[in-house]
Design a protein around this nucleic acid. Structure first.
Length: 554
RNA sequence: UGGGGCGUCGUCAAGCGGUUAAGACACAGGUUUUUGAUGCCUGCAUUCGGAGGUUCGAAUCCUCCCGCCCCAGCCA
């Protein structure tokens, strides 16, 4: 990890400052609720928290914030662990659950009652809303606010013992119903929930709220810096209030801006909508911004970490350009992936002067960025396929691919010249008849003539078929998350986010391949998780940069 | 219009009273190239939301104004 040159940010500055006045070991935590899958936004938090632990030789805990049994499931804790590991982080023995602390939390609640700082309230949710007041008007005290300590203790025990129905009573902190901060208007500490918890089963029928759990969990785990997103700024006074009233170790909460990406949504609710309405296959659909989706898409974890590093940490709401993520992916893949040849939309080319039944083994460089990657053999024969886009009957200027009478180089093979164009009844070009120049084996001319265009190809007799899936942004709108400009999520869905090519042709090297490759001149591709030997499936991770396509657009 | 935050290049983001206001992505040119890829080179904020003020000196300090985000779950 590049802890040496990681960019400066206000949280690191704060830690550095703290470290000057006091000696301690940095201790952070990543605290997901196991109620859904992790996405690229979580990756930012994971990289921040685990990254700081690495940088300062400290520790980062993985803690599941599982205080709401009605929403949480064990399958999510498994998926979250898998995602964090895949991203490249290790929590060692430091995996915890807020539910580990239910007994302790309950004692904390009793302590507050005994101090006269908490009370059992009988108001129902609607009444509580009325009593809470509004943004501009103070709330008013609940009629149950002044119950005696003894009565509160007894009532709370009965809540815990299951003597009341769900919603009948809650435990509240006694703070200030006229506070300008709504979170301080006697927040609920415990509610009755007769649900089975994914870990502790039916042991409890009262469950602590987030606010009453998070800070105390941080305290118990001796977290030094509790990093969360901006929307919790208003909760910080409450976070501090509990720790102060309880007189326990007091970590500091620091808030930073969550990640937003253009052409993408990161809200759990909307992501769920995409899955449930069938706009995507599942949470790990390669178009999804989930970590499982990106994994399946073929994004290397290193690239995601690099992206998170480059995005930075600040307090301003921002929308990061998706192109930055793609840049990080390309940067990694350019360095690491083997170059192979595959033709997505084949156009038959017959080499008239090439002997029938002759096969030559051409040497192909595996990765020009990595001399150690070596070479491999590629069969070449009389009939090859090239990309349909690489031929134009009436080419515009600056087009230096194939056209009638033109010469072009087949990568790692020969220079060929188009002699004849064969069309079907519909007038579509279905075959090219070419000649090859035997003096240009490996691609260089003997007479010094310059060949500008180089095409990728596969040998007809040796290629094998595969399904290739091309992905584009899921949304056409730059900011589908903005409900003002994009009220209907589905109206911004990109109809072309997935294009399936059923019969692409791959060079033989790719038979039974695994992992990621660069399909020369096309992009980076990876073998999909549901590939099979009968129908191999490849996903396009990301295209190559394409300045020609850009010129054509203009 | 109560409270809490935030406004530095198209997009992120350093900067913390004295810098020609980092860097990255994007964009535009050039160059190398058997990938129109990669690499390399060049350009891209006389100005930091606005207006005043303090100071020899302000993106950095003060005042006022403007804009955007968050908060009225027994969700997290």
């Amino acid at each position: 990890m590049s802890e040496v040159d990681s960019p400066s940010n206000f949280i690191q500055n704060k830690i550095d400052e703290d470290l000057k006045s006091e000696k301690f070991t940095v201790h952070t935590r990543f605290p997901p609720e196991p109620n859904g899958h992790l996405h690229i936004g979580h990756a930012k938090s994971i990289c921040l928290n685990f990254g700081l632990a690495v940088k300062y030789s400290g520790t980062c805990n993985l803690r599941f914030d599982d205080t709401n049994p009605s929403k949480e499931e064990t399958k999510y804790v498994k998926a979250i662990q898998e995602d964090v590991k895949w991203l490249g982080f290790d929590w060692g023995d430091n995996m915890f659950f807020a539910s580990d602390y239910f007994d302790q939390l309950c004692e904390f609640a009793v302590q507050l009652i005994q101090k006269g700082k908490a009370y059992v309230d009988d108001l129902n949710p609607e009444q509580m809303r009325e009593y809470r007041g509004t943004l501009s008007e103070p709330g008013k005290d609940s009629p149950y606010r002044n119950r005696t300590v003894e009565e509160n203790l007894e009532l709370f025990q009965k809540m815990k013992a299951g003597e009341f129905a769900e919603g009948e009573k809650v435990l509240r902190a006694k703070i200030d119903m006229s506070s300008s901060n709504l979170n301080m208007r006697d927040p609920v500490l415990y509610r009755i929930l007769k649900a089975t918890h994914h870990r502790v089963g039916d042991k409890w029928c009262i469950y602590p709220m987030y606010d009453f759990t998070h800070g105390q969990s941080d305290s118990i785990e001796k977290i030094t810096h509790s990093l969360c997103t901006l929307e919790f700024e208003d909760h910080r006074p409450l976070y501090d209030w509990f720790l102060d009233e309880l007189e326990i170790y007091h970590p500091q909460q620091i808030e930073f801006a969550r990640l937003n990406l253009n052409y993408t949504i990161l809200s759990k609710r909307k992501l769920l909508q995409l899955v449930e309405e069938g706009h995507v296959d599942d949470w790990d659909d390669p178009r999804m911004p989930t970590l499982s989706g990106m994994r399946r898409r073929g994004y290397p974890p290193e690239a995601i970490r690099e992206f998170c590093e480059r995005v930075g940490i600040s307090k301003s709401n921002s929308i990061v350009d998706f192109a930055l993520l793609e840049h990080c992916v390309r940067e990694d893949l350019n360095r690491t992936s083997t170059r192979v040849m595959a033709v997505l939309r084949p156009l038959k080319v017959v080499l008239l002067n090439y002997p029938e039944n002759q096969v030559e083994e051409m040497d192909a460089v595996n990765n020009p960025e990595d001399p150690d990657a070596g070479t491999r053999k590629m069969p070449f024969s009389r009939v090859v396929y090239i990309e349909q886009d690489d031929f134009m009957e009436d080419p515009p200027k600056k087009f230096f691919r194939l056209g009638p009478g033109r010469e072009v180089r087949l990568k790692h093979a020969y220079v060929i010249k188009c002699e004849e164009v064969v069309k079907n009844e519909a007038g579509e070009v279905v075959e090219l008849r070419c000649t090859y120049d035997p003096d240009t084996r490996s691609g260089s001319t003997q007479d010094g003539r310059k060949i500008k265009g180089t095409l990728h190809w596969v040998s007809a007799d040796h290629a094998h078929k595969a399904e290739v899936r091309l992905y584009n942004h899921l949304f056409t709108h730059e900011n589908p998350a903005d409900e003002k400009v994009c009220p209907e999520l589905t109206s911004s869905l990109n109809p072309d986010s997935l294009e399936v090519i059923k019969e692409a042709l791959l060079e033989p090297y790719l038979k039974n391949a695994k992992g990621r490759f660069q399909f020369l001149r096309l992009g980076y591709f990876c073998v999909d998780s549901n590939t099979s030997s009968t129908t191999p499936v490849f996903n396009r991770v990301v295209t190559l940069r394409d300045t020609w396509a850009k010129m054509v657009k203009k």
